[in-house]
Nucleic acid binder design. Structure first.
Lengths: 148, 148
DNA sequence: ACACAATTCCCCACAATTCCCCACAAAAAA
DNA sequence: TTTTTTGTGGGGAATTGTGGGGAATTGTGT
């Protein structure tokens, strides 16, 4: 199982290209995984990068829980799959963020990659700083979760 | 279980490298642990070093209790891993402190390692001195805490 | 079908950082 | 004192990260 670790600040140029951090590229290759999938996070204002194998796995999990004959559930599945793009890595080791997604999470020049175990998140630096630098609630949440 | 003890002053060079004190390295090796994880402390203006095995263990436990489709739980996980980096020890027994973290705790040339049981803290010497020089209310605080 | 704009792709150049190596001072051990 | 371990410093190669030019491709409207 892949395990992405680390926080990398990077810059997106005017063409929407970002260097895909070397640490993560190595983790990917170690898994024999080459391709990435990208979509907006379902809750937060950020983008999520999946190694293709992880993506497939999640699709399977969803599929197995949803009834394809149920209109509502089929719609959920459709929405989940619809916003996804494949994200090739170019010869320079960079990825090209689709305009549509850039706008959805208001990505500017300064971005931040966050290794999230088996996925990688891509944040606008300003957004990430605002959300993640005040860990006030973290303590309480953890306490509640880890309590028996 | 590892148990790091001691206060060691050291110098960080212009490249951001610091010699990882021999005492701590021995404690690490005794555990078969080679790599370290580093992050900013949640509350204080210092960095925390975890033996990798300790970190992974905590991560696994957390992962297994969190539902990745749940917004709040995913946020807890995110806050937990955001800001963490792997910290290899180079051939000279030194670690390279990421620029991002140096700035967050305003690390200069003079630094101080403090063994904190199963983790190690890394302070800017000036910051550490400032805290320890005013022998605040340790006595009173302890008294209050330990009182039945 | 054609012209035009926008986007994507492929290439090159260069700046910054990290890695690997060696040298040596200082302290501790023999 | 000699030897070993610990701690500091720096040079330079290799990798990583940033930027931009311009050809190819796609999409748009006329």
């Amino acid at each position: 199982m892949v395990r992405f670790i680390g926080n990398i600040d990077a810059k997106m140029d005017e063409k929407g290209r970002v260097f895909f951090p070397a640490v993560f590229r190595r983790s990917l290759q170690k898994e024999g995984d080459e391709a990435l999938m990208i979509r907006k996070d379902i809750h937060q204002n950020c983008l999520v990068l999946y190694p293709k194998s992880v993506w497939n796995q999640q699709l399977d999990e969803l599929r197995s829980r949803l009834n394809r004959w149920n209109s509502q559930q089929q719609m959920v599945f459709r929405q989940f799959v619809a916003g996804v793009d494949e994200l090739p890595i170019d010869g320079n080791g960079r990825i090209l963020i689709p305009k549509r997604l850039q706008q959805q999470v208001s990505l500017q020049a300064s971005v931040r990659f966050i290794g999230m175990d088996d996925t990688i998140e891509l944040w606008a630096k300003e957004t990430a700083d605002a959300l993640l630098d005040n860990p006030t609630s973290l303590g309480e949440n953890l306490e509640a979760l880890m309590d028996f």
